[in-house]
Amino acid sequence: MIPEITLTAWQILLVKIGVILAIVPTMTLVAGYAEHKVMAHLQHRLGPMYPGGFHGWAVLLADGLKFLYKEDIIPERADRRVFSLATFAIFVPAVMVYLVIPVDRSLIVEDLDVGIFYLLAISSVSTIGILMAGWSSANKYALIGALRAGAQLIAYELPIVLSAAVVVMLSGSLSLVDIVEAQNWPFLIWPPGIGLIAFLVFTMASVAELTRPPFDMPVAESEIITGAFTEYSGMRFIFSFFFPEVANLVAFAAIGATLFLGGYQPIVPLGVLEVIPGFVWFTLKTAFMVFLFLWIRPTFPRLREDQLQKFAWKVLIPVTLALILVAGAWVLYAPEALR
């Protein structure tokens, strides 16, 4: 069907770069627009309606253009070098997460054999960027925001890592493709409860990791303006705050879809459903996760910083530790139920 094209490794790399550079901003724009619209409709209003004509689809493009024309202000007392470096430290990891997510059976930029490890590692690099931003701003709100962000991101890193460990135990591999392949049976439901609890823990911790409401204390506007990014303006603000936030939102949705919802596999292993290509399944599952995240935002008020820490250390982490033991016992003593 498709003529055999042979590409050199460098050409393949170029294609990969092109694909990622096309997909990541598009995903971000779509998710950002979805956020506007989903929230608006949940709140009985219309949301953006004018930019672009049809239901305001171009509102984020217009927004981006506006920010491009905005003055870039770095406060006098800020540490200029760290201040500008922070943008990169936040933005670059947000893009690099996408490298290892398997969109389809063979549609993956790099199928690392420690894919899940890479994913967890790279998604937590931005913590450093946020701390850099907060500290270098020499602003009190920024400092409080950065410290909150630091404490929160590391506290919720653990439930994510540990719930991912559960998945690794059940699938027996660190490669994301293998993990997806291992989910050709309803992973979420069987073995009883384990996957579901891990999924819930992962979702909650992801919301915290994304610093979205109800865990948005690091950027709580009614308390500390925009936290670490209070002093950022113009394009720099987009790159350090808005873009990574939405890009990470999609990334975590994709990770959730990959680890728990069976990635590019059909929801149930039925012959009829196999006809639908894998990336469609993947996109649907990711969209579902994104909607879940968007749904949570207008529903809850914000927690307080100490309550959030308590929730992580006293609820989520003990639960996942116990889950690991249960999953281990299950794999060892009832393996026939798995495969």
Binding site: P213, T299, F300
Partner: peptide, 11 residues
């Protein structure tokens, strides 16, 4: 809104 719940505002 101050507690971070945005929806009641619109309602």
């Amino acid at each position: 809104a101050e507690l971070g719940a945005i929806t009641p505002t619109f309602f």
